[in-house]
């Protein structure tokens, strides 16, 4: 018999779960049925009739309906990230699950899990958010000096610092182009503008803003906190992950590559 040395802490746990997000009003005769439901104080039926998805997304996550200018930028952001291509890690995971006839309910969570990492995934957004928030308060010259010297004879590999990277030796042209587009909007995007200034100074280094870095900088400018930014990124990419998974679901396994043995090298077992 093990000696019982453990004892309870004096934690006082809540009797009910508090939430500021959703109010349900009970049916007068059955306390397990909601008669009305309010999201952040607004009747969900009125929201359904008068608002769009970005409104409800922002209301759920931030707590208020977005101002029109914020909504426009957020809408552009969500659309811009709604498909990161079939080669994106989450898309590949979704297609693999689809072609393997994984339970359809699992395709989206699988793809979101696979794309939750620090390389191009949702963790990359929060890493960039923290890094850019910190760096953008410092002098640009000092920031750039941290990264010098840049290699003179080799194009760069990977990440310069969270939010700025190189794709196979070059800056990401799509992230670069989106950055310029966002800076044309009517909101003051001071952090994104700072990222643009850094990017200008990185000309010819092969480094530029990453897609995660751009997403993070826009969220900083929209005053969306870092945890919410990560989740927004997941929601933004979700439509494409679902689409790629569903596209492959039910198709023959032969529709996607399965490497032949001459392309699958096992260390110590090669001819």
């Amino acid at each position: 018999m093990t000696t019982k040395n453990e004892r309870k802490r004096d934690d006082v746990f809540a009797e009910s779960t508090p939430t500021a997000i959703c109010l349900e009003v009970a049916n007068p005769t059955n306390e397990y049925i909601a008669q009305k439901r309010y999201l952040r104080g607004y009747d969900v039926e009125s929201l359904a009739l008068n608002c769009d998805f970005i409104d409800s997304l922002y209301l759920n996550l931030v707590g208020e309906l977005p101002e029109e200018k914020v909504k426009d930028v957020l809408n552009q952001l969500m659309v811009a990230y709604s498909n990161l291509g079939a080669r994106y890690v989450g898309s590949r995971a979704a297609m693999n699950a689809g072609i393997g006839r994984t339970n359809i309910s699992h395709i989206l969570p699988i793809a979101l899990c696979a794309s939750s990492g620090s390389v191009d995934g949702s963790q990359a957004v929060i890493d960039a958010y923290i890094n850019i928030s910190k760096l953008s308060k410092a002098d640009i010259t000092d920031v750039l000096n941290q990264f010098k010297p840049f290699p003179e004879n080799d194009l760069p590999v990977g990440e310069l610092t969270a939010g700025f990277n190189s794709l196979a030796g070059n800056r990401d042209p799509i992230a670069n182009s989106l950055l310029k587009q966002f800076l044309k909007c009517s909101l003051d995007l001071s952090t994104t503008n700072w990222c643009s200034n850094i990017q200008d100074k990185l000309e010819n280094t092969g480094f530029g803003i990453s897609l995660g870095g751009l997403f993070a900088s826009i969220c900083i400018d929209l005053k969306i906190d870092k945890k919410t930014s990560l989740v927004l990124f997941q929601i933004a990419i979700a439509p494409s992950l679902a689409a790629f998974g569903l596209e492959k679901y039910g198709k023959p396994l032969t529709e996607m590559p399965f490497l032949s043995e001459d392309k699958y090298k096992i260390e110590g077992k090669e001819d």
Binding site: S16, T17, T19, E24, E31, G41, G63
Partner: peptide, 10 residues
Amino acid sequence: SIEDIAYTGQ
């Protein structure tokens, strides 16, 4: 039940 959630919001 509905009462098991304590609404603290708007």
